[in-house]
Nucleic acid binder design. Structure first.
Lengths: 204, 204
DNA sequence: GAAATTATTATACGCTTGAATAATATCGGC
DNA sequence: GCCGATATTATTCAAGCGTATAATAATTTC
C-alpha cells in the first residue's frame, strides 16, 4: 500500500484552490452535489484536508460565497475615465464575461436560495448588494453633476435602486437563456433604458 | 406495535399536498434540507408514500418547480380592466404578497440554481420566463395602441425585455432585503421607471 | 544532515439519504 | 357487511454524507 505523493502548497494557495473547487462543484452539481469528497477531488487533494483549512464545510461554503460576491462586484467597482464613460462601463461589464456567464448566475442563485436559511449568508448578501448599489449611486451622482443636472441624494438613491434592479434582472435572464437574445441586445436594451430612466444620453 | 391510522386522500389531493410540502421544505431548509423524510413529515405522511405518487424525488421536485412558476405568473396573467390599468396591476402584483415574499424568491432561486444542472428544470424555466414576458409584451402593445402611439412588434419586444428585467430585479432585492426599502418604495420606483422607459404616463 | 514541524493522506465512524419491499388499513362496489 | 383494490405504513438496505483520528511524507530549522 503506497501512500500518495504530494506537495505542500505555498501559503494560502491551497485555501484558494479549495474555494475555487467548491464553486466549480456548486456550479456543476448544485449545492447538494458539492460534497466534501467531490470538492477535494476537484482540488486534487483528499477530503480530510478540507478540515485542516476550514472549521467546517459550511464555513468553507460561506467563504466561497464571499468570493463570488467579490468577483461580481470588483469588475464593476474598478471602472475608470470620466463619469459618463464609467457609467457606461459599469453597465456593460455586467453583460460581458466573466460576469455575464451561466456559471456566475448559478452560483449567485445557489447562495441567494440559502439567504433565508443561513443568517451568515444573508449578511454577506446584504453587504454585497449595498456595496454594488452604493457604487452605482455614487457614479450616478457624479454623472448627473457632470451633465449639469442637480440631483438630490434621495433622487440618486432611487435611480440607483431602479438601475441596479434593471441590470440585475437582465443579467439573470441573459445568463440563464442567452440564446433568447441577439448578440449585444441586452447591453443595448440596458443602455437605452438607463438613458430613459435618467432622461439623459450616456454618451460623452 | 400499533400501526398508524390514516385516511386515503381524495383524487389528486395528496399529490398536491406533497408538492406543497416540498416547497415548504425547500423554502425553509434549502434544496439540500428538503429530504424525502422532512417532506413527508410536513405533509403528515410517511416517507414511502412519496414513491407511490412520484417516480422519484427528483421528479417530485421538478413538478414542484412547475407549481412555483405557475404561482408567480398566474397572478400577473389575470389582471383585468383597460390597458393602462392592466399594465399598472401587472407591475404592482409583483410587489404585493404573495408574489412579493421571501419564500417565493427563495424557491425561485433554488430552482434557478439548478437550471444549469438539470435540463428538465431549464426547460421549465424557459417556458415560464417566455410566458411571463410575452404576456407583458402583449400588454405593452395594447397599452401603446390605446395611447395612440404606434409601436412595432420589435419595439414592444425590447420594452418587454427591459421592463421584465426591471421588475424581476426589484422583486428579488425587495424580497431578500425588504427592510432596505421604505413601504411602497419599490412599486413607486418601478412605476416611475416604466413610465420613463416608455416615455408615457401609466395613469388613465 | 538530523530533528522538529505540519500539511497531507488514509481510514474509520455514526448518521442520513433515496429507494425497494412487504405488510396492512382504508375504502368503493356489490 | 364482506371483498377486492390500493393507498399508506413499516422496515430494511446500500450508498454517501461530514467529521474525527492517527499515520506519514514534505518541508523548515538549527
Amino acid at each position: 500500500m503506497n501512500r500518495r505523493t504530494f506537495h505542500r502548497a505555498p501559503e494560502g494557495e491551497r485555501r484558494q484552490e479549495l474555494i475555487e473547487a467548491t464553486l466549480d462543484c456548486i456550479a456543476e452539481f448544485g449545492l447538494k452535489g458539492a460534497t466534501v469528497r467531490q470538492i477535494a477531488i476537484r482540488a486534487g487533494v483528499t477530503a480530510g484536508l478540507v478540515r485542516h483549512y476550514f472549521d467546517s464545510k459550511d464555513q468553507m461554503v460561506a467563504e466561497a460565497y464571499r468570493a463570488v460576491i467579490a468577483s461580481l462586484t470588483e469588475k464593476a467597482q474598478n471602472v475608470e475615465g470620466d463619469p459618463a464613460t464609467r457609467l457606461r462601463e459599469f453597465i456593460a461589464v455586467n453583460f460581458t464575461e466573466p460576469v455575464a456567464d451561466s456559471r456566475s448566475v448559478s452560483l449567485w442563485a445557489a447562495f441567494i436560495s440559502q439567504v433565508r436559511v443561513d443568517p451568515v449568508l444573508a449578511e454577506i448578501h446584504r453587504e454585497g448588494y449595498l456595496a454594488f448599489r452604493n457604487t452605482l449611486q455614487e457614479l450616478l451622482s457624479e454623472f448627473l453633476a457632470a451633465k449639469g443636472r442637480s440631483a438630490s441624494e434621495e433622487e440618486c438613491r432611487r435611480y440607483a435602486i431602479a438601475i441596479n434592479g434593471l441590470v440585475d434582472g437582465l443579467w439573470v435572464e441573459g445568463c440563464l437563456a442567452g440564446d433568447l437574445f441577439r448578440d449585444g441586445e441586452l447591453v443595448s436594451i440596458a443602455m437605452a433604458s438607463v438613458e430613459a430612466v435618467l432622461g439623459l444620453p450616456i454618451e460623452n
